[in-house]
Computed example of a mutant assay.
Amino acid sequence: MDIIVAIILGIVEGITEFIPVSSTGHMILTSRLMGYDDQSSVMNSFEIVIQLGAILAIAWVYRFRILNLLGLQKDSQTSRAIGKPAGKLNLIHILLGIVPALAVGYIFKDHIKSLFSASTVLWALVVGGIFMIFAEWYNKRYARVSAEDIDQISYTQAFLIGIFQCISVLWPGFSRSGSTISGGMISGVSYRASADFSFLIAVPIMIAVSGYELLDSYKDMNSDTLLAFAIGFVVSFIVAYLVVLAFLKLIQKVQLRHFAYYRFVLAAVFWIFIMN
Rank of each mutant, 00 (worst) to 15 (best):
S190I: 07
I251A: 08
A246C: 13
D224G: 13
F159Y: 05
Y191I: 03
Y241N: 10
Q252A: 08
V254N: 05
V269R: 04
Y155S: 11
F229H: 12
S154F: 04
S175P: 01
F159Q: 01
P172T: 05
A143V: 05
S179E: 05
V239Y: 10
S210W: 01
I205G: 03
A195N: 00
N222D: 15
K249T: 12
V235W: 13
R144C: 08
K249R: 07
I238F: 15
A208W: 09
A147E: 06
V239R: 03
S236W: 11
D149V: 15
Q165G: 01
S179K: 06
E213F: 15
A230L: 13
E213Y: 14
S236Y: 06
Q152K: 11
S223D: 09
Y142M: 09
K253P: 02
A230W: 07
L215G: 10
T225A: 04
F247P: 11
R144Y: 13
A230C: 03
F199K: 09
P204S: 14
D196M: 05
Y262L: 07
L226A: 08
R263E: 03
L170Q: 03
W171C: 09
G184T: 00
I163L: 15
A143I: 05
G188E: 00
S194G: 00
N139S: 15
L215P: 04
A195S: 09
L200V: 14
V169H: 07
Y138N: 04
L256M: 09
A267H: 02
R144V: 15
F247A: 13
L250H: 12
S217T: 06
M185P: 04
G188M: 04
I150D: 12
V145L: 10
S146C: 09
Y155G: 06
A260D: 08
T180W: 02
V203S: 14
G183D: 01
F197T: 01
N222T: 13
F199E: 12
S236N: 08
C166H: 03
T180A: 00
S168A: 15
S217N: 05
I161V: 09
I205L: 09
L160N: 01
A246V: 14
F159E: 01
Y262M: 13
V243Y: 06
I150W: 04
Y191N: 11
A202G: 15
L245S: 05
A228F: 10
A260W: 06
T156Y: 14
Y261R: 05
Q252N: 14
A195D: 00
A208E: 02
M185Q: 02
T156G: 10
V189L: 01
Y142D: 05
S179T: 08
V145H: 06
S168H: 02
S223V: 13
F199W: 10
P204Y: 14
I238R: 06
I163K: 01
A268I: 11
E213D: 11
V244Q: 10
S217Q: 11
V203M: 14
D224S: 08
F259G: 08
G188H: 10
V234A: 15
L226D: 08
A143D: 00
V234I: 14
D149K: 06
A230Y: 09
S236T: 10
S194F: 00
G184E: 00
S190L: 04
R141C: 07
M206A: 07
I163E: 01
S210I: 04
Y241L: 15
M206T: 09
A267I: 03
S177R: 07
D220L: 02
